[in-house]
Write a protein that binds this DNA or RNA. Sequence first.
RNA 1: GGUUCGGUAGCUCAGUUGGAUUAGAGCAGCAGCCUUCUAAGCUGCGGGUCAAGGGUUCGAGCCCCUUCCGAAUCACCA
Length: 599
Amino acid sequence: MEITNRIQEAVASGIKSLYGQEVAAESVQLQETRPEFEGQVTLVVFPYLRMSRKRPEDTAQDVGEYLVREVPDVVARFNVVKGFLNLVIAPAQWIGLLQEINSQEHFGFRPVTPESPLVMIEFSSPNTNKPLHLGHVRNNLLGWALAQVMEANGNRVVKTNIVNDRGIHICKSMLAWLKWGNGETPETSGKKGDHLIGDYYVLFDKHYREEVKELVAQGMDEEQARQEAPLIKEAHEMLVRWEQGDEEVRSLWRRMNEWVYAGFDETYRALGVSFDKIYYESETYLEGKEKVEEGLAKGFFYRREDGSVWADLTKEGLDEKLLLRSDGTSVYMTQDIGTAKLRFQDYPIDKMIYVVGNEQNYHFQVLSILLDKLGFKWGRDLVHFSYGMVELPNGKMKSREGTVVDADDLIQTMIEDASQMSADKVNRLEDITPEEAREIARIVGMGALKYFILKVDARKNMLFNPEESIDFNGNTGPFIQYTYARIRSILRKAQAQGIEIPAELPTTAELSDKEVSLIQHLQGFAQTVRQAGQDYNPSCIANYCYDLVKEYNQFYHDFSVLREEDKQKQVVRLALSEAVSKVVRNGLGLLGIEVPERM
RNA sequence: GGUUCGGUAGCUCAGUUGGAUUAGAGCAGCAGCCUUCUAAGCUGCGGGUCAAGGGUUCGAGCCCCUUCCGAAUCACCA
């Protein structure tokens, strides 16, 4: 940061003094110098030709001479290639930067203060009738990572989850359990609560389809059969009783939801995600009506003859949207308005981010406009953090076709594979207890899963290849974790040998090109964090970590740290190793990926 | 049909606000490297009309227009 800023300012004042034109320092664009040229930082002078009214080469020469004259402690010398001004930075500057990175626990992060903007992030949002699957995993990991990134960018973050705990789908599970469950519980069956409920949901569907098939065989058309099947009618009756507050239904509903939540908690814990505030749809689904009535009174919405309420968004290039059914009950959109209202009562929200799949792009476009009309100040620029579908090699993930990947199974498989992988390793670490080994397997297995999902641009549909995800070679989480563990090993050994990194690094130490390049790369972390926050895109952090570690690995093979004879060089390399490990740990930390001290 | 988002190596993906005669990783294939700080690693080879065409300029994978292909969505479902 430091170096870049100083050069930017110097260039700006140089342009002013040479050509009499004002240039904003932060608009000065610097980039890393290509390896085939001498120098580390390059200024592209093309944007300033209009001001200099000179050839690119002469302009670059002017600026270069100015920099060497005015900031000789930063720019040692320069060379010009066409319109590119390559600057050789004084080594002491790089040492200083390295020192700065190491002196901070969280280099590149911005502090959070009580005055920081308050950002609320909604993610996860499960239904309580079945366990979490791979799609939820992507949602949870993205939501968590985004929350970390926003916080690192100096925002106060509230992580929230809206649980869809009511509706016909829960009644289906409840009904099936009553009919065929024989009082089975998570304790008696040994199943996780969410899986138990999910199984009854599937069971309902199975019997329901049989009923429909039978009715069709008797000559009923399929559409009608779906509505007339005794099971679905019974489920609807149950929903009505639920809405009336029937205590028998409610208490069963509470009991079964508790099972599900216990199951979800286990999965969330394994994924390493948590929430600051959980909303339940059963408590919020009636809230939106009032706001809709308010909008109706103000003339934003209109009522049709049958009594239903609509918003006309044709002016915004969208369609008309239903807000209240003719029977006065609310729809999905109404509920989201109600939830927004409650949230705003609870927190002074400056920015709202919804982590929801891209199949709901239209919904959030509409929601944004509606909230804006209804006077929510953050409505207009709410963020729908929209992510793509997870596809499997043999096609899409569809629960109906049975091609879902269960989250718990997946997590378990990843950890088992990591355990197997480390057992197969040739150079095993000897002095490791079984407990430590299990913990390492957990960290590595989860790291593999998380990294595999988070390295892909969230907007894109992604292919989840189970075989490839457990391949720990290449651009993977374990590769990064492994490099981290090796660096930690070096640092431990240095300490054991009594080699300390001094508080003040020797500014006279010589630096190789690779060392300078690594320091430069480290500097880029701050920018990457900022970019991730601006673009709502955690994937660039994942890719940054990989690039950094890849570069360090090459360094690792070319140079030795502990056997270096020159004490100055040794200390600098040690400091460099520490900086890399620190930045990697912080970077992966933003993604919710842990790092092992040994593996 | 309308809207939104995608299309980069055989496969999975990067590509920072447009930058340098040569667009990067990984996987898969081939060839090397463990008496050397952890080989889950490193080095080398092969593999591309950045979907197609036009435009903007000193310069385009990136910006604009057109076309082609793919996905999502446009419910008194959530």
